[in-house]
């Protein structure tokens, strides 16, 4: 028995020629980020998978009424590169609550024009996946809708790792808390506060704006956070000096609006 085991070990210890990788299967994964950069694997949370788009914020940022907009979600491929463009298969995943309707709230994934955008260019491994949102009147009358989408399967790709192939987009016709809102910088979220920030700066203060802000100089983020604090103090002081004096600004819940003194 021992001798047999030794023989088995000896044979197993020998060098084995390995076949080079040759699988033609290719997969897609989304790339997720938080305030500090890219997050991968088990560290990806549902919060990172979720984004919010507000037509109100986008309109504030551009100064015009936005009714159609394209959002981009970073993804990367697994497997060999290709010397031709490859269409990205997307599918909607039903959720509880109001689901976004293709053609009403977003451009359908099989729309020929959309398919021209939704592809991995030749010889690239990273891509921005488009989602084209539409402003339906029902957003204001009936509330937000949710578009949960995932990678499907076509002749080029199939989904990648579990947990890295889905995104959730909340489409809103009102101001909504951006998913990357940081209480440490901006304080507790309220719509009234959000409207003040947009009014005072003329910026969108949506996820895209915040992503760009966090990607820059942190001293500037500290400065802007403190600027809101100081500006609100001045505004409240002016209100208190009125005759009769006015109380400090409050939000939609009757709570005093407060910024963070950074």
């Amino acid at each position: 028995m021992a001798a047999a085991l030794c023989a088995a070990w000896a044979l197993a210890a020998c060098e084995k020629d390995l076949e080079p990788f040759s699988s033609t299967d290719c997969h897609l994964n989304f790339v997720y980020t938080d305030m500090y950069g890219t997050v991968a694997g088990e560290d990806v949370t549902d919060e990172m998978r979720t984004s919010t788009y507000s037509f109100v914020s986008a309109s504030a940022g551009t100064g015009t009424e936005v009714v159609r907009d394209t959002l981009w979600f970073e993804a990367s491929t697994m497997g060999f590169l290709s010397d031709v463009d490859r269409t990205i298969p997307l599918v909607q995943v039903e959720t509880e609550g109001r689901n976004a309707r293709p053609g009403v709230d977003y451009v359908p994934f099989d729309d020929p024009g959309f398919l021209q955008l939704c592809k991995v260019p030749a010889n690239t491994a990273s891509v921005q996946v488009p989602i084209i949102v539409l402003r339906s009147p029902s957003l204001e009358t009936e509330g937000d809708v949710t578009l949960k989408f995932a990678f499907g399967t076509n002749e080029y790709f199939s989904p990648g790792y579990k947990g890295l192939t889905e995104r959730v987009l909340v489409i809103s016709g009102r101001l909504a808390r951006p998913n990357n809102w940081e209480d440490a910088y901006w304080g507790t979220y309220s719509q009234a506060k959000h409207e003040l920030m947009i009014e005072w700066t003329g910026d969108a203060w949506d996820e895209t704006f915040l992503d760009e802000l966090y990607d820059g100089d942190y001293a500037y983020v500290d400065y802007i956070a403190r600027w809101f604090y100081e500006t609100l103090a001045e505004v409240n002081a002016d209100r208190a000096a009125q005759d009769p004096p006015l109380g400090p600004l409050t939000d939609e819940n009757g709570e005093e609006i407060q910024f963070v003194k950074r």
């Binding site: 950069g37 820059g216 100089d217 942190y218 001293a219 500037y220 500290d222 400065y223 403190r226 600027w227 100081e230 950074r262």
Partner: peptide, 19 residues
């Protein structure tokens, strides 16, 4: 006044409000 440094890309070095 302080400015965080040492990130992947350099900041501007400009400073915010005093703490």
């Amino acid at each position: 006044r302080i400015a965080q440094v040492g990130g992947d890309t350099p900041g501007t070095g400009k400073l915010p409000y005093p703490s």
